[in-house]
Design a protein around this nucleic acid. Structure first.
Lengths: 357, 357
DNA sequence: CTGAAAGCGCTTACAG
DNA sequence: CTGAAAGCGCTTACAG
């Protein structure tokens, strides 16, 4: 008897092979207690008829795990999230676990996801990619009664993988300081749709400390905190220059390469060249960094995704010795390119007017 | 009785509410034939106990659709695919259908996907994002016995949505021609892991025809076809200039913005400025285009994803009148920015040596 | 080694 | 309006 989908069912195979349902099941599952001959016969007819079991029925009958995990992510189309998903999918697919994708970019999506919990009773685990989960969301998540892991962000409550933001900021700004820079602007960004990250990111703290270590006082007129996106960074950069007429920055630290790219547009339009007139450094090593000769603090988001997937696998099949890591910090490395260099000597002001594009 | 997950089952609700399983089911499903009082009682206890049905059990019992679709995509982390997935997920989520994500970037992944067909018996439809499916892969896909749609690429066999590549190429090159350019280089790209696209892309044909319309003969020394990626485009650009010493191009048409960005790196490193020394145009309107002042032929991949999702919904719930479109061509628009301009007058050669970065 | 039977969590004719 | 029963496609004790 075929099912609604038109697929064959186990009973079709059993009948065709001339054995009982029980035996057919055991043969397909390679259980013990089936003669080689019988098994082969069943396997052969299954193959011939191109039979595959119904995973849903198996789940129901055996009470086994769903072999599915929910991946909840703000925006798949952004590089960071895409890389993360890529890494996660790669190792999960190899382990034969399926990925259910849920986007919670906007506030409504998010509200909807946590209130409806569409993944409920569908998955064995959920991985929350790079966004902070507040108390009530956390409670909703617990309601699902499955394992949870956080990828790309620190989490007090769940196993997680992420980079050390403080070190990243420190590394970027130390680099500028070593080149002699003292007037260093900073462009930070928050995703307006993802409230809840700590007000002051570790990256900003790295900036402050790097300056302090060089004996430089923080100048708030050189700092802007914008909504996510290169265009906003471009505006912020203009803003900083307009505000700091007399004593403009000689370098800028952007919290991400995408922000850096936006800032670079402004600087380029103002006729500045890198690194002759100004230096700039980002974080990520986004593919565009190499193409724009941007110095950056590299992180491998894909690898973080792979690690997150292993964390998930641990959650799905807890090992006896409980040796699974609960928190892993991914490595970062300073990648110097042509966008950073020594402090320009400011005998002549940069060509402010000669828009050379 | 709670299930393996620890979730409550319908019988728990029925018992608690003091009704039969049948009635409980009908109340929850809002079927007719349940008194308002009974329904309310059941609904109340379900809410109180925070009960949700097991989708898998429902499916099995009712023979209904899985409400799941498989999304098979080469690389989620690339902008184009990410946007597509975003668009698809958005409308599918609103329709309460879940997305199972499968990546088939490398040849092995791909081979594995089509031979194992991991999504088999798990979904009602599969959407293949932007990669050509060959004959045998197509046969494997049919085996799943579900609807299929192609997003981001033309398909003879399935409903699809994509842009008109010929028009895109034509639009880009016509723009350059109108600016007076005659020596126009072209950088095309193929994904080495995705064989099967037509040898000569529609974009290339648009280029050829645009030149022909201007009475310009194609010069193959100005054309390169590289593997996907900005870095390869950068190398190709170098190559073109090295080869065309005497008579270098005054403009370049890149098949995508990412390729354009790579080419721009080469040009910038060679001391050229846009558009004073050379013009360049891409396709996509990738976010970096705005940030690098790149002229491009814009397409909204996200909208194509949304359209693809509607195509899927049509496949899932075929409407009687069969009025569902089988093929839709998404609009494109030329977006002029500062990277294109009139032909430079070549009285003095471009500053080949003065690497101004 | 093999099979009849019960059960997984639900739905849906079929009777009342 | 309500419920007992059969059934969806499988697995798994329990007997033989």
């Amino acid at each position: 008897m075929t099912d609604q989908r038109g697929s064959l069912s186990l009973s079709d195979i059993a009948r065709e092979a001339g054995v009982s349902l029980t035996t057919a099941s055991r043969a397909l599952n390679n259980s013990y207690g089936v003669s080689a001959a019988t098994r082969d016969k069943v396997l052969a007819t299954a193959r011939r008829l191109d039979y595959v079991v119904s995973p849903d029925a198996v789940r129901l009958a055996s009470g086994s795990r769903t072999q599915r995990v929910a991946l909840v992510v703000p925006h798949v189309e952004r590089w960071f999230f895409g890389e993360m998903v890529n890494g996660i999918e790669t190792v999960l697919a190899a382990a034969n676990v399926d990925l259910l994708l849920y986007q919670v970019g906007g506030p409504e999506d998010r509200q909807d996801f946590f209130s409806r919990l569409p993944a409920r009773r569908k998955v064995d685990a959920v991985v929350v990619v790079a966004f902070p989960v507040d108390r009530v969301e956390q409670e909703r998540l617990e309601l699902m009664g499955v394992g949870i892991v956080a990828a790309g962000g620190q989490s007090a409550a769940y196993p997680y993988v992420c980079i050390d933001d403080y070190q990243a900021g420190r590394m970027a700004v130390d680099h500028l300081v070593e080149l002699g820079h003292r007037r260093i602007a900073m462009i930070a960004a928050h995703d307006p749709d993802q409230p809840g990250w700590p007000m002051r990111s570790g990256r900003s703290e790295g900036y402050v400390d790097a300056l302090a270590a060089a004996g430089v006082a923080v100048d708030n007129s050189l700092i802007r905190d914008v909504d996510w996106g290169g265009l906003n960074a471009a505006a912020a950069m203009d803003d900083i220059f307009d505000a700091a007429q007399g004593d403009p920055p000689t370098a800028v630290f952007a919290h991400s390469d995408e922000l850096a790219l936006g800032a670079m547009r402004t600087l380029r339009r103002r006729g500045m060249r890198f690194p002759e007139d100004i230096s700039i450094v980002g974080i990520d090593d986004h593919p565009v960094a190499a193409l724009t000769d941007l110095t950056t603090v590299r992180q491998s988001v894909r690898e973080q995704g792979e690690i997150a997937a292993r964390l998930i696998l641990d959650v799905l099949n807890p090992v006896a010795d409980e040796g699974a890591p609960r928190a892993v910090t991914a490595p970062i490395t300073l990648t110097v390119r042509a966008s950073t260099g020594p402090v320009p000597n400011r005998t002549r002001p940069p060509a402010q007017a000669t828009r050379d594009h």
